[in-house]
Design a protein around this nucleic acid. Sequence first.
DNA 1: GCAGACTAGTTTTCTACACAAACTAGTTTT
DNA 2: AAAACTAGTTTGTGTAGAAAACTAGTCTGC
Lengths: 98, 98
Amino acid sequence: MNEQLRAISELDRVIHEPGRLMIVALLAGVKECDFLFLLNETRMSRGNLSTHLTKLETAGYVEIEKTYRGKVPMTLLRLTRPGRKALDEYRKGLMAAF
Amino acid sequence: MNEQLRAISELDRVIHEPGRLMIVALLAGVKECDFLFLLNETRMSRGNLSTHLTKLETAGYVEIEKTYRGKVPMTLLRLTRPGRKALDEYRKGLMAAF
DNA sequence: GCAGACTAGTTTTCTACACAAACTAGTTTT
DNA sequence: AAAACTAGTTTGTGTAGAAAACTAGTCTGC
């Protein structure tokens, strides 16, 4: 079996999902942002964004900090070091495949 | 919203699934092959390979020809022109994103 | 000062799909 | 002629993604 193909079948599914790939790619560029920023950039529904973020958190790829902007709740997101690494690996896998 | 991200959310899900991406990438390189060749190259289960192929056929991306090698059934697979195009578009979308 | 609208998300529900196990139709072997 | 093998397909099931419904709290108009 061909090496390029093996790379495809070994892609990280957590990152591979387009919704989450968008999130992770965005976070990789900004080092921190809030929920509403992601909501606006990705055009996902709130529920969707929330569950994808929870999944990324569970995977250890994203840190979720709940805080306030004045009296209004605000959720801050950051890519963790493992998250960064997972994205890099994913990129490498893709590039190897194509 | 950022253009690169839009490209990610618009990736063709039929192609995006790793199992099918492997199949399509392989078919793009050989122009015709049989079921067993794909089975061997991808290391998928037979059932899995079969359903992915049916899905690709339904999408119009792959042609399935059922024939015989002597008395033994043989299934030939080919990427269709739309299939080729879909793969190219998919590649473009990915490259735009990274 | 409280009723209703709004904000910022979370939880629940529903649908679809990937995967594997079981099955089928026919062939070869012993 | 039974058993084992080939080349797949169909069926069943658990998981996951998307949408809808819900929650907790804040702001605004009357």
